[in-house]
Design a protein around this nucleic acid. Structure first.
Length: 861
RNA sequence: GCCGAAGUGGUGGAAUUGGUAGACGCGCCGGACUCAAAAUCCGGUUCUGGCAACAGAGUGAGGGUUCAAGUCCCUCCUUCGGCACCA
């Protein structure tokens, strides 16, 4: 065995071996139980970043752990390779999105392979390849036929200068990112998935997802936003039609003092005819982006439309206001306002001097009038005619009954969730397989004509979709009647690509079918790992798609992901200099020298290049804009993949954000070298059979107990808690003690052999390269990947004494070792004998004593 | 604005079911080895007082529940994620 650890040789050697022996290529013909471990597929942005390294290391640790536990583990990999960045890169550097994307994929695949992931690369695919998206188009047509896709108008961000639709992130302060023009809301026809048809099932299904973090389920519940209420009709003044509003607080109907409608509402058009001066306001509502964050933070504005509707309960005339915060695409585009009992309405009414009419009061007191703040609790009705004195539930049914009888409303369950608009006016995406025919309307492309191939040689110019300007693409004939027709030029939202890819991995070699029976062997995914930023959209869309595909008979499970782990971001220090204009130049942490005080606090920093001061900017998410990215490739070159993996797993639990630290990485590397040396020293003394039985010194016995406690802890931390940092810490503790105990005798050598073999197996999911190498030295002729995960020896865990802590009034006053056989009373007595404890209870009256067996005694005086 | 998290020594974090706050690592301090340095190894390291034993304080702020609170409840502050066309 070599004395010194050389990561380059070892890692290359193991990776070649795994590749040559197809160690992680799997199929369905295994007697072992299956385990599908999946990390979210990356966007091929160009280079691997530390967030990827973290994500894929977590997945790999879990995959390797289950492999050792006797599972048939599938860990596939692919690329989410459609999307905006390729178009932006193409626009900037005149390379086609296809070329840019495929180059990125090749480079990143090479980078990933140097991480030593236990991935079945034979199943790899990119979502931008026709082999993938032709099946997606086929699925689209099936869903279209089933009525789960429909077309309607939707609102988008429109850049009036560049004549293009902007993504929300391309709208900055209400202006287009390139043109700087004020963005306007524009209605265009789009296709929608009817996700609301599954709202209830998506909501109910969350209750069964016990392997998902509670916070993610809560976010999804709130996103779906089920509310039980009523649809109430407010008749127009001339009775020509009704204004329909949805409310969960029909009990406040007598308190309605105005209604607010969207600028696009049909009633607003009627108002405009009678009152032309509304045009300016209606136009101003169309300014700005469509994102909810922008709408919710903008100043709330409204004008009186000149029209009135009738309150259905008492025929009172209610003024109709046009407001910028009501959007046509949300609900019915109209809300009833009850300023006395709603925060937003109260604010708006106060601003515009609208009446505030209280109709609900607390059960046990009167309201302070006039109201200084809205009373938003459910209470007892007053000022409400025949409904006076009713509580919320009674009032709700009474109003429902009344409105229904008079044909003025009905009970309704509403969801905040809206249908999923899937059309994108972009080039680099999956073409929507629809043909627009003057005779036949929207006609799906015939299955035999799939894929509708995306031309790969176009280069966007920043003004609208290249496909819409490409007659070679859109000119076609109607599949039904054969006349000249036009292909749809919109492409699909990239969330569609990532909504079913995890199923495609199970049968990626099947070019004839989207999915085959193998999907039911592997799906659902047993463990899914990805960023918390996907908590709602991606994960909800994938759940929706899974249910759709189930209803198409393509898969037989209900949910896509049984267990979910959401990992945190990777942060690093930022450093900058600011010029006179306030423009910041960011310095990469690797180009900066930090000065610390005697306690290690950061005092100041200088650039290595010129030795002059730079500002310390704190920890931020690694990004190009802050120039604080650390290149994983450099780290792997210098320290090896194992050190990078160990650092990532040890420095923080997976869910929390992880702060990059060069020193921390050095620490991880030190541990790896130390592990190597400990095995080297042991092997120099000669390998022996691992300890099974025989007399050990007291210290050795304690060490062996610790080994088996460590096995228990590591197993629990990885299998149940998915908390790798504490698993690693406990192995470090074990090795710290191992180094202190004398093991030079025959039994000691056997114990040393047992410990080192077990440590190498326990750490192998995290640092697989070095562990395989060390295992070969410790157990020649055996393969680590063929070993079974460890189980603790219960006899080693059987200790007969326990440390009891003694508190007086909840404060720690002493510790004693007691035999486990002692009764509660005996333990209590022993506690009182403790010298230090005696000081605190002497002369005091003992009110109460709490004894927690095996743990503590608390004496209350 | 709305929804969801997080906040613990100089620092990353640990404390798993309400029961020893600070495991493990980093940094720093001291020592060994060395001509010297690096590497490595050993010891110390929450703060205050004390030679020490020990005592007091302490988990973003303020209140509360409990024999006992980092952990549960209420109010607030700060930071981060998402908000439907970034992925």
């Amino acid at each position: 065995m070599q004395e010194n650890y050389n990561h380059k040789d070892i890692e290359k050697k193991q990776q070649n071996k795994w590749h040559d022996t197809k160690a992680f290529v799997v199929d369905e013909n295994s007697p072992k139980p299956k385990y599908y471990c999946l990390s979210m597929l990356p966007y091929p942005s160009g280079k691997l970043h530390m967030g990827h390294v973290r994500n894929y290391t977590i997945g790999d640790v879990i995959a390797r752990f289950y492999h050792l536990n006797g599972y048939n583990v599938l860990q596939p990999f692919g690329w989410d390779s459609f999307g905006l960045p390729a178009e932006n890169a193409a626009f900037a550097s005149h390379v086609s999105p296809a070329k840019w994307t495929y180059q990125n994929i090749d480079y990143m695949r090479w980078q990933l392979q140097s991480l030593g992931l236990a991935v079945d690369w034979s199943r790899e695919f990119a979502t931008c390849s026709p082999d993938y998206y032709k099946h997606q188009q086929w699925l689209f047509i099936r869903l279209y036929e089933k009525g789960l896709i429909y077309r309607k108008n939707g609102v988008v961000n429109w850049d009036p200068v560049d004549h293009t639709v902007l993504a929300n992130e391309q709208v900055i302060d209400g202006k287009g990112w390139r043109s700087g023009a004020v963005v306007i809301k524009k209605e265009i026809p789009m296709y929608y998935f009817k996700i609301t048809a599954y709202a209830e099932e998506l909501l109910q299904g969350l209750d069964e997802l016990s392997g998902w973090p509670e916070q993610v389920k809560t976010m999804q519940r709130n996103w779906i936003g089920k509310s039980v209420g009523m649809e109430v009709n407010f008749p127009y003044q001339d009775n020509s039609d009704n204004l329909v509003v949805f409310t969960t607080r029909v009990d406040t109907l007598f308190g309605v003092t105005y209604v607010a409608i969207a600028a696009e509402h049909p009633l607003a058009e009627i108002a405009l005819k009678q009152k032309p001066e509304l045009a300016d306001f209606i136009a101003s509502c169309k300014k700005g982006g469509v994102s909810e964050a922008e709408l919710a933070t903008q100043e709330k504005k409204g004008v009186f439309s000149g029209l009135y509707v009738k309150n259905p309960i008492n025929n009172e005339l209610i003024p109709v206001w046009i407001a910028n915060y009501v959007l046509m695409s949300y609900g019915s585009g109209a809300v009833m306002a009850v300023p006395a009992h709603d925060e937003r309405d109260f604010e708006f009414a106060t601003l515009h001097n609208l009446p505030i009419k209280p109709v609900v009061r607390p059960g046990d007191s009167e309201l302070d009038l006039p109201l200084k703040a809205p009373y938003t609790e459910k209470g007892i009705l007053f000022n409400s005619g025949q409904f006076d004195g009713m509580d919320f539930n009674k009032a709700f049914s009474a109003f429902a009954e009344y409105l229904k009888q008079h044909n003025l409303g009905q009970a309704k369950t509403n969801y905040r969730l809206r249908d999923w608009g899937l059309s994108r006016q972009r080039y680099w995406g999956c073409p929507i397989p629809i043909i627009h025919c003057e005779n036949c309307g929207d006609v799906p492309v015939s299955d035999s004509d799939l894929p509708v191939a995306l031309p790969e040689d176009l280069i966007p110019d920043g003004s609208g979709s290249p496909l819409a300007k490409s007659p070679e693409f859109y000119t076609t004939v109607c599949p039904k009647c054969g006349v000249n027709a036009k292909r749809e030029t919109d492409t699909m939202d990239t969330f569609v690509d990532s909504s079913w890819y995890y199923m495609r991995y199970t049968c990626a070699d099947n070019s004839m079918q989207a999915l085959d029976e193998r999907v039911n062997y592997w799906a659902p995914v047993d463990q899914y790992i990805g960023g918390i930023e996907h908590a709602i959209l991606h994960l909800l869309y994938a759940r929706f798609f899974h249910k759709c595909l189930r209803d198409l008979g393509l898969v037989n499970s209900k949910e896509p992901f049984i267990n979910l782990l959401t990992q945190g971001m990777v942060l690093a220090d930022t450093f900058y200099r600011e010029d006179a204009q306030g423009k910041k130049t960011w310095f990469n942490p690797s180009d900066v020298e930090v000065v610390v005080d005697e306690k290690g606090r950061e005092l100041s920093a200088t650039a290595k290049a010129d030795g002059k001061a730079v500002q310390i900017g704190g920890q931020e998410k690694m990004s190009k804009s802050k120039n604080n990215g650390i290149d994983p490739q450099m780290i792997i070159e210098k320290y090896g993949a194992d050190a990078a993996r160990l650092f990532m797993m040890f420095t923080a639990p997976p869910e929390l954000s992880l702060e990059w630290s060069d020193n921390g990485l050095e620490g991880a590397n030190r541990f790896i070298k130390r592990l190597w040396r400990l095995v080297y020293e042991h092997v120099q003394n000669g390998i022996v059979k691992p300890y099974t039985s025989g007399d050990l010194s007291a210290e050795q016995k304690k060490l062996r107990t610790m080994l088996h406690q460590t096995i228990q802890k590591v197993t629990h931390d990885i299998a149940v808690r998915r908390q790798f940092n504490t698993a690693i810490a406990s192995v470090m503790e074990l090795l710290n003690y191992y180094s202190k105990v004398s093991l030079s005798d025959e039994m000691g050598q056997a114990l040393s052999q047992e410990i080192l073999e077990d440590v190498v197996i326990m750490l192998s999911p995290i640092i697989p390269h070095i562990c395989e190498e060390l295992f070969r030295e410790l157990a020649p002729g055996k393969e680590l990947l063929d070993q079974h995960w460890l189980s603790a020896d219960l006899t080693a865990l059987d200790v007969d004494e326990a440390e009891i802590i003694i508190q007086v009034n909840g404060k720690l006053r002493g510790k004693i070792m007691v035999a486990k056989s002692l009764s509660k009373e005996q333990v209590e007595e022993a506690a009182k004998q403790n010298v230090n404890v005696a000081k605190f209870i002497e002369g005091q009256i003992i009110k109460k004593t709490i004894v927690v067996p095996g743990k503590l005694v608390n004496i209350v005086v």
